[in-house]
Nucleic acid binder design. Structure first.
Lengths: 362, 362
DNA sequence: GCAGAGGATGTTATCGATGCCAATGGGTCG
DNA sequence: CGACCCATTGGCATCGATAACATCCTCTGC
């Protein structure tokens, strides 16, 4: 970085050579010259400013085309103070839901003329998230979507979110942050109620890691629904979102004769659960009904196809971006949490209790 | 965009107000003043330049900390001509493989001190890709990873890749582009050979859309392997990567009595195929063996667990980024294709022909 | 037919950090 | 003991585009 000045024929900036072969990228000034107007007019034309004559605009555009001119974003940002970029902090995992959300956000951002810069973190650990947030902040993003289910908000994160408009997706809110979330409590209620209505005496639950806010909400929704129905609440089996953890918990469930219905906090874990149940000789849904959450593409194609609660990811992304942009435009506006509703998708992994002729009872 | 000048009390740049409440972001000059050094020294300190005395460095860092100073990226980019950002063009689909690759790239880029800007495209259609590429180019990215399996390269894409260093992942190469790819032909060979070795008379194939280069390569690898083994090559069944398309093709396969082995071009489609076979009363792997590609997390947890060909996504991402950075550093270097090797993972969806006592023959 | 309004353009200052070069000062080598 | 070198640090110009302000010009309306 310091020892790179072989010859001394370089112009200060860009590291481009004075005037040897490689044609330098044309600048606005070049376009202006070619079009016979001022740089300012070029700028106005390209910004879609109204007060430019058709003829002039045409000349400018022609020049742009001819030179293959391309705006220099850095200069634009520096000068205008607006980067038209938002950052997204996301998890490096491939858990379906988060990855999908990213695309929802990207689409909505583009729609609004914003670019998206991604910072993935491998863990939920505070330092990692701080790092990601801070990398983004240094990139002049105008705002950040924290697509990370953080429950604990460190002071440093709090400080960062205070200097950069932030929207949290499915996470805790900081004083300066808006939250957009799928109503996970409702998701759990839908699933649990569905099972209760099928006549199950109670519903077991395989949860996500408790540090994840959505996992916690689903767990709460499940518990509340059972209690409201006056049913007993079995102990929670804890998973980590992976199919493997579902499998482990499924083996446990298979050993408990009482179990007739399970609400699993994600489809991927549900696959694991079902697998384990099958191996243990319990039929789904005849012996045990299973409901997942997410509605991943494969949910419909496993056997049995999975009853699950679908989450509107694209909508979420759009909502998050909309909130963020509003917040950027008017930093004064009071944060206003928003949530979107999940939808129960009934397939073949759930059935009335005792599916067969003989009713299974505790 | 044009009608936004309600009051006229704004300083030219940053849209920050002259001197009302809101403290403006501190600049390098502020830090320099507080630390009692020149702005230049601050710059050097922050850039990790070697020739700065410890005492000075400490003073500067203290001042930075106190003011909560944050480098202005736009200015740095404008001045240095280096954005330290690479762009990734990816597909908006949630097909496991691509999403995963994105994270691999992000991780490798971060490792190298680069930020990542994402542009997702909804389709493979040339215009969409051009758009994504061009959005990225306008963001001053130093290079682009085209994580899109394009087969056809339009002149405009070609022009763009000429002005921005580009690495294509699993795609066609343009004259100015490097290609990094998983050896999909090998993936197909591994899968096909595995099935042949199990004694199957031939292997059927459910492919991805032929416009996808990786789909085409897998198909070619499969065909070649069969031919080399002197086996007959059945017609190709074409899918579109979705589980649904796998299901449709599975229904077809189930009607053909000859079929004992199927190589499916993706795990997600394989799930669909297996589902259809089950519904049609064909057992996997007893009646029909199935191999997928990707090794998604769920592959191990469906029933039967899926034999598949794993792709080293993280490695791919790292390789792509490494190539890209090399290409950025030395634009003259000749493009040099690279590929990484997939690995066969044998699970329970494949078995020796006629799994049971009675051997099945054509 | 002339003044004023407003549209279309040009001019200039500026955003914030960096690269080059000069200047300073302590030490080394002959 | 003097010339020279290297380590540190400051000064200045500069990257490319935009906001604000100044101009110039061409229409209206009276």
């Amino acid at each position: 970085m310091s020892s790179e000045t072989p010859a001394a024929d370089r112009t200060p900036g860009s590291g481009r050579t004075a005037d040897d072969g490689a044609a330098r990228q044309p600048g606005m000034a070049d376009v202006a010259r070619l079009a016979g107007v001022s740089a300012q007019t070029v700028s106005r034309t390209l910004a879609g400013h109204p007060n430019v004559q058709h003829a002039t605009r045409a000349k400018v555009l022609a020049a742009v085309e001819e030179l293959g001119y391309r705006k220099n974003n850095a200069a634009r940002v520096l000068s205008s103070g607006r980067s038209r970029t938002i950052g997204v902090v996301t998890l490096r995992t491939t858990f379906y839901s988060r990855a999908n959300l990213l695309f929802g956000i990207e689409a909505a951002a583009r729609e609004a003329g914003y670019a998206v810069s991604t910072a993935a973190t491998a863990s939920l650990d505070t330092a990692a998230i701080e790092g990601a947030l801070s990398r983004l902040a240094e990139q002049d993003v105008e705002g950040v979507v924290l697509s990370v289910p953080l429950v604990h908000v460190s002071p440093r994160i709090e400080r960062l979110t205070r200097s950069v408009p932030t929207v949290t997706v499915d996470g805790s809110r900081t004083p300066a942050t808006e939250v957009v979330a799928v109503d996970q409590t409702l998701a759990a209620r839908l699933a649990t109620r569905h099972l209760i209505e099928l006549g199950h005496e109670t519903v077991w639950h395989v949860s996500g890691p408790p540090e994840w806010l959505d996992a916690a909400s689903r767990c709460a929704g499940w518990r509340d629904t059972l209690e409201e129905a006056g049913l007993s609440v079995p102990p929670v089996l804890e998973g980590d979102w992976t199919p493997a953890s579902g499998y482990r918990n499924g083996l446990v469930l298979a050993k408990i004769p009482d179990v007739t219905a399970v609400f699993v906090a994600s489809d991927e874990m549900a696959f694991g659960v079902i697998r384990a149940l099958h191996e243990a000789g319990r039929r789904v849904p005849r012996d045990i009904s299973v409901v997942g959450v997410d509605d991943i593409a494969l949910a419909e194609y496993c056997s049995p196809s999975l009853t699950t609660v679908a989450q509107p990811f694209a909508e979420m992304g759009a909502l998050a971006v909309a909130h963020l942009l509003r917040h950027i435009a008017d930093p004064g506006a009071a944060p206003e949490p928003a949530s979107v509703e999940p939808v129960l998708v009934v397939r073949a992994s759930t059935a009335a209790v005792g599916g067969g002729p003989e009713a299974r009872r505790s």
